[in-house]
Amino acid sequence: MDLSGISPILLLASLMVASTPILLAALGELVVERAGILNLGVEGMMITGAITGFATAVATGSPVLGFLGAAAGGAALSVLFAVLVLWLKSNQVATGLALTLFGLGLASLVGQSYNGIRAPEMADITIPVLSELPVLGPILFQHDWVVYLGLALVAAVWWFLRTQAGLTLRAVGENHEAAHALGYKVLRLRFFAILFGGACAGLGGAYLSLVRVPQWTEGVTAGAGWIALAIVVFASWRPLRLLLGAWLFGGISVLQLNLQAANVPVPVEVLSMAPYVITILVLVLISSGRGRAALAAPGSLGQPFHASR
């Protein structure tokens, strides 16, 4: 056993990278759920983004365009979900599950001609001055731009939820009947929320296929979309806590592997299930504690909406 080999700074730095795909996907889902929609198709949208992003990047030679393509791909798939759920009133749980099935099939079909190809490379952006800081420099300021984008998006969503438009979105998610009565365009708002969710999931998927692996292989997301769903709940629908959740979920895996590398015997399964158990405990706490109304799930989450007048 040699714990001295584990450098906390490097550990946190790799945490930033490891948590990026699940953070991006979870952020999108957070906005969707805040609007009162439960989309269980995150895995399907992620992997669709992974392949459309990869294909775009290979075709154009530009990772940036690749990520744009990924966002577009994820959003395009989410349109299917939106149309079904919002206008055709289908059940959200069943539709989300079907979306995952559809997305996985679509991605591997599209991906068949991309096996074994490498994605164009993406350089890290070391932010001048800041990256020189001791401790914080390597942890925060020596990554690729998508890591920064993820953090910026968290801040943006945090800010957005406080704007007038954000309050409207939250109102729609809390009580769509009342929001409708107040004259808000419930379906239109939800449509854009779902689209945003799809785009974010697509970005998360592309981070795997363009940066982490970086190659197209079937099943490249390997369940990351499901973890993203858990993180949203862990975060009790708060963007800043989402960051914490992504670090926790990503961190457990990174820590576990680091402990193994340092020759510490670890009960891998116990550690892997820990974040989910913690999430359930968090849920219990926020549901039973004080200020319950302010913390619990959006009131209209998962319910269908039909404007009857």
Partner: peptide, 14 residues
């Protein structure tokens, strides 16, 4: 391909 079958199932559900 297995993927086409999966896609087909997804379509049916939709």
């Amino acid at each position: 391909p297995a993927a086409a079958v999966q896609l087909f199932q997804g379509m049916l559900l939709f």
